[in-house]
């Protein structure tokens, strides 16, 4: 139990996917303008990460690794994730239109998001078991949501700021992302300290 909490806290705070591992930067910069969109995207990412891990981990362990096909994992994972997301989207659209309206619009966007493929590959590379993989995916998703929501707050302040002409738009956003990333450095060592 303790090791699971350590994995969760580490992936949320210390090894935050966006701010320290640079995965999923595109949605982080693209969809963080408004708080509700940022939160919607974050929840969709958590959902897809959990789903993708739940499917890719057994596929890797019981089919690919058993038959010596582990070099095929990149191809298999991206295809599985892409088709899975499409399937879920179709099901949501048909049976849960309300949920689809709030969450489904982000689903196609994250099919080719590197954070989702990244978390599934990392689970394999770190040789986590199934439960640990799911917890790690949950943690990464929560970390992504946290970063998105925090950054949406920062960006709402940027709207009214007046940076130099050349810095307008993306550059000033990146510089403020640097400061947010710097603030996350404060968490390094927190997990070790808590469970020492």
């Amino acid at each position: 139990m303790k090791s699971l909490i350590i994995i969760l806290m580490t992936s949320v705070l210390v090894n935050n996917y966006v701010l320290s591992k640079f995965l999923g930067i595109c949605p982080f910069l693209g969809v963080s303008k408004k708080l509700n969109q940022a939160a919607g995207m974050g929840v969709a990412v958590i959902f897809v990460m959990l789903l993708a891990t739940a499917v890719t981990w057994p596929i890797y362990t019981y089919i690919l690794a058993k038959n010596g096909l582990d070099y095929m994992r990149t191809i298999v994972f991206i295809l599985v994730i892409a088709s899975l997301v499409q399937l879920v989207e179709i099901i949501l659209k048909k049976y849960m239109p309300a949920l689809h309206a709030s969450l489904g619009i982000y689903l196609p966007l994250i099919t080719t998001n590197c954070a989702v493929l990244g978390v599934t590959l990392n689970n394999i590379n770190d040789s986590y078991n199934f439960i640990e993989s799911m917890v790690n995916s949950l943690g990464c998703g929560l970390g992504f949501l946290l970063a998105m929501v925090l950054f949406a707050g920062v960006r709402s302040r940027l709207e009214t700021a007046n940076p130099p002409e050349a810095f307008k738009g993306l550059p000033i956003t990146l510089v403020s992302a640097a400061i947010v990333a710097l603030s996350f450095f404060g968490f390094s060592g927190v997990v070790d300290g808590l469970f020492a």
Binding site: L19, S20, K21, F22, P164, E165, A166, F167, K168, L170, P171, I172, T173, L174, V175, A177, A178, I179, A181, L182, F184, F185
Partner: peptide, 22 residues
């Protein structure tokens, strides 16, 4: 050493894009 860490990456990238804009 902050330049080789995550914040430095965002910062340098932002500055380079600003330079290209300029």
């Amino acid at each position: 050493s902050i330049m080789t860490l995550a914040p430095g990456g965002f910062f340098v990238f932002g500055c380079l894009i600003a330079l290209v804009n300029k």
